[in-house]
Each structure stands twice: as C-alpha cells, then as structure tokens.
C-alpha cells in the first residue's frame, strides 16, 4: 500500500497506531464502568454482557443486579418484553445462558421454559455453552473479506492453537467467525468480548493476543511497543 495505513480513530482497543487515545475518543468519563445497579431505568440494561470475569454459578439476581433487574422489568408494558434484557443480564453474570439459566429466567418473568428456550436460541449472542475468557469473533463478511479477513481468522486460529468455535486448552480463547459488525471501513474488525479491535491485519494478531494475555495477568492494557 502506498500510504501509511489509515486507522480508524474510534476506540478500537487497537494497538495504538492512531493519533487519538481511547480517552480522546470516548471522553475519559466514558471509559469507566457504569454502576452495577444501573443508573436511570432507561439505560439500566446497557452494560456489556460479555466480560472476562464471570461466575457460572452466580445467583440470579442479587444486590445491585437485583436492582437492575427490577429497573428493567419495570420499564416495559409487558413482562415478556423484559426477556431479552434479562437474558443479557444473566449472561453478563454467568458468561453463558445454559438451559437451567433459561428456566430460572422464565420463572422470574412468569413465562414458560419452552417459550424462553425458543426465544433464546433465536439469538446468536447468547452463548449456549461456556466460552473462553476472551471470545474472539472475526468478521469475515464482505468488506472485511475483501481486505483479507479470512487470513486474519486463520492467524487467530493458528496463534491460539484452536479450531473454529473451540476453546483453547487454557480456557483463555474461543475463536469464531462473525457477521458484519458495522465497522466495514476499518477492516478487519474483530470483536473481543465487549470491545471492537479495528484495522486488524495478520501481522497485528500476535500483538493483540499478547495484549489480552497481559490483561489476564493483571497487567495494564497498554499497547506493546512497536
């Protein structure tokens, strides 16, 4: 390519080549976590529901999560409408939505288990089984594909030593294929848990993985030096 690579200034969680920092892009106050009990009921379900830390046996719902569940439940005219946000909340806590979780959510909302299962299986973002600490989803749809997404996907599989859809032996990484993530101008786009990594090339893959490992070890999220 003739010019230097052209990077999206968006918070890409990328490896730091673009000129704006994450704080510049999001505003420093946006980078912080939202309160666990949620703020205004209108926004209470808008947390990322794919986190590194999760407990498959966490109770539904206690403490601040109970507060959030009630806010969610209260803002719709029907209990049924609270179903998706409640499943989101359950996945945020437990990391995946097992059949047992579906049953519990059904009981909470007064719906039948069969109904909840039918709905939950319609949506791809509910992990029906446990996934790695980092769920790496590589967009291979058209715009990314034209710019080498298949190779980026192959590189993630190679460097994590996994097969498509499987989790690495250390439980850290699950690599999957994603459909268009609405970041098509910044190919390849890779969604890792709740973050987008944009402009990812094959050469970036080891650095991205090194950064994720550093985060697991409690290291700061600073990009590796060039």
């Amino acid at each position: 390519m003739s010019e230097a690579r052209f990077h999206n200034p968006g918070w890409a969680g990328n490896t730091g080549e673009f000129e704006l920092s994450e704080a510049d892009v999001r505003g420093s106050e946006y980078a912080g976590d939202l309160p666990p009990e949620g703020g205004h009921p209108s926004t209470a379900a808008s947390h990322p529901f794919m986190l590194v830390e999760r407990d498959p046996d966490a109770p539904l719902f206690e403490g601040p999560y109970q507060a959030r569940f009630e806010k969610i439940r209260g803002r719709y005219p029907t209990a049924m409408a609270a179903l998706l946000p409640t499943l989101n909340l359950a996945q945020e806590l437990r990391g995946h939505v097992s059949p047992e979780t579906m049953d519990e959510v059904a009981a909470l909302l007064g719906l039948s288990s069969a109904y909840v299962r039918g709905v939950a299986t319609f949506y791809t973002m509910y992990n029906k089984r446990p996934v790695g600490r980092f769920l790496i989803q590589v967009c291979t749809n058209i715009s990314c594909n034209l710019c080498g997404a298949d190779e980026v996907l192959a590189a993630f599989l190679e460097h994590t030593g996994t097969e498509l859809g499987d989790t690495s032996a250390d439980g850290n990484f699950t690599v999957a294929e994603a459909e268009c993530l609405a970041a098509c101008g910044f190919p390849t786009c890779v969604q890792i848990n709740e973050r987008y990594f944009e402009d990812v090339s094959v050469a970036d893959v080891p650095r991205v993985l090194a950064r994720l490992k550093a985060e697991l070890n409690g290291g700061d999220a600073a990009p590796a030096p060039e």
Partner: peptide, 17 residues
C-alpha cells in the same frame, strides 16, 4: 441498539442519563 454495539451503547447511556 444492536447487541454488539457495547461501546456505542455506553456512550448513548451516558448521554441519555
């Protein structure tokens, strides 16, 4: 909001609050 839009959702949530 699309489920994958975590970051946009947070920005939106802040603004709405």
């Amino acid at each position: 909001l699309r489920g994958e839009f975590f970051e946009s959702t947070r920005v939106m949530a802040r603004a709405l609050e």
